[in-house]
């Protein structure tokens, strides 16, 4: 099996300067993700599932440990890789799918969806055709394709977001509750697309509010356990 990501001793703590306090998120996590594998992060709310995903994407900086990503261009430790490399890998090999769309004013839905393909060098027409295909697949009506998603409902924005996030197959996909607030049709389309990508060898790691949605895809589960609570620094007298 081809290794995609090798996580070793990963630790994340938030240093809150204004509180003079450190908030531990998770500690000494190790696991390996292979091509075509689907890992589910499980555990109660607040246990650090989304924090872990963001750390894997390097939106959060880990304080210790390694994130060996087996890129097409070589193995690199994302935990301390140069920003330009992380930016490059996000464009070419690592995708992050959230439930939130970062819509920009005056940019049409189909252009937002086509953008990752255009950035990857595809010509405008081909990118737009693919964009329309995926907008249709996720159930966005054709009369909205030229409209600006800033005015869309939450559910419609999410469909645009998914189409954009999944238009280009990546080597690794990080999924942060992508099914939340989707209607049944869009959820089915999403699961079908994820299954297709998995069959193509895309490695995935995700957080799902209703893991039942993707039960058929899950290979392994990584249970995150609640940490011991932060030491009380002082009793607050009321």
């Amino acid at each position: 099996m081809t290794t995609i990501l090798d996580v070793q001793g990963l630790t994340k703590t938030f240093e809150m300067h204004h509180l003079g306090q450190s908030l531990p998120a998770f500690e000494d996590l190790s696991f390996t993700l292979h091509a075509g594998e689907f890992l589910l992060l499980s555990g109660p709310n607040g246990v650090g599932k989304s924090t872990l995903l963001r750390t894997l994407y390097r939106s959060y900086l880990p304080v210790a440990g390694h994130l060996w990503f087996h890129s097409r261009e070589g193995v690199i430790d994302m935990a301390n890789a140069a920003d330009i490399d992380v930016a490059h890998l996000r464009r070419t090999e690592i995708g992050f799918v959230t439930q939130f769309l970062n819509a920009r004013p005056r940019v049409a839905a189909e252009d937002i969806v086509a953008e990752p393909m255009r950035l990857a060098g595809y010509d405008r027409q081909e990118a737009l055709e693919q964009a329309r295909h995926w907008l249709a697949a996720f159930g966005v009506k054709p009369d909205l394709w030229r409209a600006y998603p800033t005015t869309f409902s939450g559910g419609e924005q999410q469909k645009v977001n998914l189409a954009r996030a999944l238009i280009l197959p990546q080597r690794m996909l990080l999924l942060d509750e992508p099914t939340a607030s989707l209607d049944k049709g869009a959820r089915a389309a999403l699961v079908a697309r994820l299954a297709e990508l998995k069959a193509q060898g895309v490695a995935m790691i995700g957080v799902f509010h209703h893991p039942g949605d993707v039960a058929a895809l899950i290979d392994r589960e990584i249970p995150l356990k609640p940490k011991t609570p932060i030491e009380e620094t002082a009793d607050v007298a009321l």
């Binding site: 261009e73 070589g74 890789a81 490399d85």
Partner: peptide, 12 residues
């Protein structure tokens, strides 16, 4: 300081 010494993948 850590970032400056970080290993590089892209040779841009």
């Amino acid at each position: 300081a850590l970032m400056k010494e970080a290993p590089r993948l892209v040779r841009t």
